[in-house]
Deep mutational scan, measured.
Amino acid sequence: MLDDRARMEAAKKEKVEQILAEFQLQEEDLKKVMRRMQKEMDRGLRLETHEEASVKMLPTYVRSTPEGSEVGDFLSLDLGGTNFRVMLVKVGEGEEGQWSVKTKHQMYSIPEDAMTGTAEMLFDYISECISDFLDKHQMKHKKLPLGFTFSFPVRHEDIDKGILLNWTKGFKASGAEGNNVVGLLRDAIKRRGDFEMDVVAMVNDTVATMISCYYEDHQCEVGMIVGTGCNACYMEEMQNVELVEGDEGRMCVNTEWGAFGDSGELDEFLLEYDRLVDESSANPGQQLYEKLIGGKYMGELVRLVLLRLVDENLLFHGEASEQLRTRGAFETRFVSQVESDTGDRKQIYNILSTLGLRPSTTDCDIVRRACESVSTRAAHMCSAGLAGVINRMRESRSEDVMRITVGVDGSVYKLHPSFKERFHASVRRLTPSCEITFIESEEGSGRGAALVSAVACKKACMLGQ
């Protein structure tokens, strides 16, 4: 009897593995994704193909990295998701002549009506938060230079001027797309009239992360975010950046690689679950690469896999709870928690219980395998993109072996128990001629924006502006 049951459990697990095998990517698959990513990057950089390229390769006008001589107080704003952060950054000489960066910050959550109302409502709310922060720190009387981390696709015309191309991540505030974001912020500050600010720089969160990590390690020339969304930036040779005049030196390019796949480059790798996630998203047909990796989508992918296993009578005796059938019910943090389970399955059992399920031991094991399959594919897909960037940098610099540091931020990278190990191992397999160091950014977005502002202020002083 026991043997029969054991055989049935083994057969069930084997069927589960057959279904989950769809998520496995072979090294040849990853090399294919990497080569296609490089081709799209090239198209994004070139003037004649930029418009139709899915990977936009947006110039950021960040050319210099901090040298350690900029000092002063800077205000930093960070808008990239449902939370908005205001930070005071003091850049100065530390002990023994070292450079020191001290920060104080406060988080504000953005109400739904500000995210989806008008641009005026959104930026009025942001300036209200700045006003509140300055009151708390008794700094209303000071006109501070301000660095703005704005983590949406922007076409820069200068370091302090950028046109919002399109909202992502659930934002829909009308009247912002096609307009200068810094102008919208300046107008809102003017409307309030109770404080003055000098907006000197606007950067993407990947750029802010790279600059913040450069402060720790001067070989950091790539910034990457794996959180709600997924994106990367890197220092490109100016001669390859056709959208900006000049051939000397390097400029940081914001790849906006989340949109890779929007022209069909990933079609052969998309599964039924991916198509369902895409169809029910706020932007169907867009940001397809990001939807395979980002935390906004990972939990939902797992939920759809679990429903398939229920329908195949391989999980929960073929019956799903009402909660499990509800879109968004299986949160991405559950994926991390399930994979963090120590082996007694308590954590998995508790999560499934909150979803109205009474799982068996085998159910718990199957749910864990589903989570591992989805998150491992995410790590491997992400590795193909980064390997594409790094191999490109090595080739354009004609280096036999390139040493490089990548600064990384984002909740999936930082909080998932195995993502970074799987990701690092896969990147290294795909970049055999590179020695890569990964560092995690601390308060990256805010500190990085302030350091970019410090560079901009120093330049302005040198130019006598």
Rank of each mutant, 00 (worst) to 15 (best):
L2Y: 04
D4C: 12
R5K: 15
A6Y: 14
A6K: 13
M8W: 13
A11H: 12
A11W: 15
K12R: 13
K12Q: 15
E14V: 10
K15S: 15
K15E: 11
V16N: 11
V16W: 15
V16I: 15
L25Y: 15
E27Q: 15
E27L: 07
L30V: 05
K32V: 03
K32W: 05
K32M: 05
M34T: 02
M37T: 01
K39Y: 07
K39S: 05
E40G: 03
M41V: 07
M41K: 01
R43T: 14
G44R: 07
L45C: 10
E48D: 06
E48G: 11
T49R: 14
H50T: 07
H50M: 14
E52Y: 09
S54Q: 10
V55M: 12
K56H: 07
K56G: 11
M57L: 04
M57T: 05
T65Y: 09
P66T: 15
P66H: 01
P66F: 13
E67K: 13
E67A: 06
G68L: 11
G68W: 03
S69H: 14
E70Y: 07
G72R: 00
G81D: 15
T82S: 13
R85M: 11
M87W: 05
L88T: 03
G92T: 07
E93V: 08
E93Q: 06
E95Y: 12
G97Q: 04
G97N: 09
W99F: 05
W99C: 06
V101Q: 04
V101H: 07
K102G: 12
T103Q: 10
K104C: 11
K104D: 08
H105E: 06
H105V: 11
Q106M: 09
S109D: 12
P111R: 08
D113G: 08
A114W: 15
T116Q: 10
T116E: 10
G117F: 07
G117L: 09
T118F: 14
A119G: 08
A119Q: 10
A119V: 12
A119K: 13
L122Q: 06
D124M: 03
D124H: 07
D124I: 04
E128G: 08
C129V: 07
I130S: 02
S131E: 07
D132R: 09
F133N: 03
D135W: 04
D135P: 03
K136S: 09
K136V: 07
H137S: 08
Q138L: 11
Q138S: 10
M139D: 11
K140R: 10
K142W: 12
P145D: 00
G147F: 01
F148C: 11
T149W: 12
F150Q: 15
F150G: 09
F152S: 13
F152A: 13
P153W: 13
V154P: 11
R155C: 15
I159N: 07
I159L: 12
D160L: 15
I163Q: 15
I163W: 13
I163F: 12
L165Q: 06
N166E: 13
T168R: 10
G170F: 11
G170L: 15
G170T: 14
F171M: 12
K172Y: 03
G178E: 07
N180G: 06
G183K: 05
G183D: 06
L184R: 06
L185Y: 02
R186D: 05
D187F: 04
R192L: 07
G193L: 06
F195D: 01
F195A: 02
E196L: 05
D198L: 01
M202Y: 05
M202E: 06
V203W: 00
D205E: 06
T209C: 03
T209H: 04
T209L: 06
T209V: 03
M210G: 00
S212P: 00
S212D: 01
Y214R: 04
Y215F: 03
D217I: 11
E221M: 06
E221Y: 03
V222I: 02
V222G: 01
V226C: 03
V226D: 01
V226L: 05
T228P: 11
G229L: 15
C230M: 07
C233M: 00
E236K: 00
M238E: 03
Q239S: 13
N240S: 03
V241C: 02
E242R: 01
E242C: 07
E242A: 01
E242D: 02
V244F: 00
G249V: 01
G249L: 01
M251V: 10
N254L: 07
N254Y: 05
N254P: 01
T255K: 01
T255F: 14
E256K: 12
A259L: 10
A259W: 12
G261T: 06
S263R: 08
S263M: 06
E265G: 02
L266W: 01
E268M: 05
F269P: 03
L271D: 01
L271F: 01
L271V: 01
L271A: 01
E272F: 06
Y273E: 12
Y273C: 05
D274V: 04
S280F: 13
S280E: 14
A282C: 15
P284S: 13
Q286A: 14
Q286S: 14
Q286E: 13
Q286K: 13
L292N: 12
L292M: 11
I293L: 14
I293P: 01
K296G: 13
K296A: 11
M298T: 13
L301H: 14
V302D: 00
V302G: 01
R303S: 05
V305Y: 00
L306G: 03
R308G: 04
L309N: 04
L309A: 03
L309Q: 00
V310W: 03
D311A: 10
E312V: 03
N313G: 08
L314R: 03
L315Q: 00
L315A: 11
F316G: 06
F316D: 07
H317A: 09
H317I: 14
G318W: 09
E319A: 08
E319R: 09
A320P: 15
S321P: 13
E322Q: 09
Q323T: 13
Q323Y: 07
L324G: 02
L324V: 08
R325L: 14
R325Y: 13
R327Y: 10
R327S: 13
G328H: 02
F330E: 00
F330W: 12
E331G: 13
E331S: 13
T332G: 12
R333S: 04
V335W: 06
S336D: 08
S336T: 00
V338T: 00
E339D: 01
E339W: 01
D341W: 02
D341V: 01
T342Q: 04
T342Y: 01
D344V: 02
R345F: 14
R345K: 05
Q347W: 04
Q347P: 01
L352P: 01
L352S: 02
G356T: 04
R358E: 06
T361I: 02
T361S: 09
T362W: 12
T362H: 05
I366T: 04
R369D: 01
R369S: 05
A370Y: 00
C371V: 05
E372V: 04
V374S: 01
V374W: 01
S375M: 07
A379P: 09
H380Y: 11
H380T: 12
C382Y: 04
C382N: 07
S383V: 05
A384F: 10
L386M: 12
L386I: 14
L386Y: 02
A387K: 00
I390V: 06
R392D: 01
R394V: 08
R394F: 09
S396K: 15
S396P: 08
S398R: 08
E399F: 12
D400S: 07
M402V: 05
R403G: 09
I404P: 05
T405I: 02
T405N: 06
G407P: 01
D409P: 08
K414W: 08
L415C: 08
H416Y: 12
H416R: 11
S418E: 10
S418T: 13
F419G: 03
K420A: 13
K420H: 09
E421V: 08
E421S: 14
R422K: 13
S426R: 06
R429Q: 15
I436Y: 10
F438V: 03
E440T: 11
S441Q: 06
S445E: 14
G448I: 06
A449Q: 09
A449T: 14
A450Q: 15
L451S: 13
S453D: 15
A454W: 12
A456C: 11
A456S: 09
K458W: 10
K458Y: 13
C461Y: 10
M462R: 10
L463I: 08
G464Q: 12
G464W: 11
